[in-house]
């Protein structure tokens, strides 16, 4: 096959084109393709209702500086106590409420200075508060572990329960468990409330409540729960917490 000059030139151009392309792909485009991986995310399955872990504590920290804007913000945190109506209402609103009217008035004109002062003065108490909070709370992962351990242990009892009727499995029962250090129930589980009740399954509500209580009573004592988390500094641990129950 005879090639003329134009064909040689065309072949040379094609070779050059391919060399450049492969070089570009190897050197730069391959690097562009390497999107850095996002940091691995730790996913934890935590019971939606249970011990009050770090969240309410950390939200409760802003009120101590006692500054008007932050007090204003603190109000949305009020719904948080509804998760744990037993303990929190007496703690958070008490320091928060009396302070706001006292300080904003004289500090309105010099926000900058007061703001800095406030931080300096409150710094020690601020740093102390989270330290206590972290010592007093159960981390979400530990909480999830406790919940899983309890679930595992009560599963056989839950499996034995007979479903009273159609729709009953949609009923969720909130139970308050008060445990002794040995894992026995201090008092029978208290039913705090139910959800998922509709016209169809309303007649089973009481039955499901009983079944829920029976499940936990039947499989007590609960073993293998971490003793160091039985009670923390604030008194919260698996000694007293809330779980959800529904029929399998």
């Amino acid at each position: 096959m005879k090639m003329d000059r134009a064909e040689w030139a065309g072949t040379g151009a094609a070779l050059l084109f391919h060399a450049v392309l492969i070089g570009a792909l190897t050197l730069s485009l391959a690097q562009v393709a390497s999107v850095p991986e996002p940091p691995s995310m730790e996913v934890e399955f935590v019971e939606d209702v249970g011990l009050t872990p770090a969240a309410p504590q950390s939200v409760a920290v802003p009120p101590p500086p006692s500054q008007a804007p932050e007090i204003g913000k603190a109000e949305p945190t009020e719904p948080v106590p509804t998760i744990q109506p037993v303990r929190t209402p007496s703690i958070t609103p008490a320091p928060a409420r009396p302070q706001p009217p006292a300080k904003p008035a004289p500090r309105m004109s010099r926000i900058g200075d007061d703001f800095l002062k406030g931080i300096r003065q409150d710094a020690p108490s601020k740093s102390a508060a989270p330290a206590q909070a972290s010592a007093a709370t159960v981390s979400p992962s530990a909480m999830a572990g406790i919940v899983q351990a309890i679930r595992r242990q009560v599963q056989p009892c839950a499996d034995r329960q007979v479903n009273p009727g159609e729709g009953a499995s949609r009923i969720r029962v909130r139970l308050r468990l008060q445990l002794l250090r040995s894992g026995r129930l201090r008092v029978p589980p208290q039913v705090l409330g139910t959800s998922g009740v509709d016209d169809e399954n309303a007649r089973y509500e009481e039955r499901v409540k009983d079944l829920a209580v029976a499940t936990f009573v039947g499989c007590a004592p609960l073993t293998g729960l971490p003793p160091e988390l039985y009670e923390t500094d604030s008194g919260k641990g698996w000694s007293d917490f809330i779980m959800n129950y529904n029929l399998p």
Partner: peptide, 18 residues
């Protein structure tokens, strides 16, 4: 395939210019 591609482009360049 790479050789085919080079050949293809050689023909493309040559013929298009011609």
């Amino acid at each position: 395939l790479l050789l085919a591609s080079v050949w293809t482009w050689a023909i493309i360049f040559t013929h298009a210019l011609r």
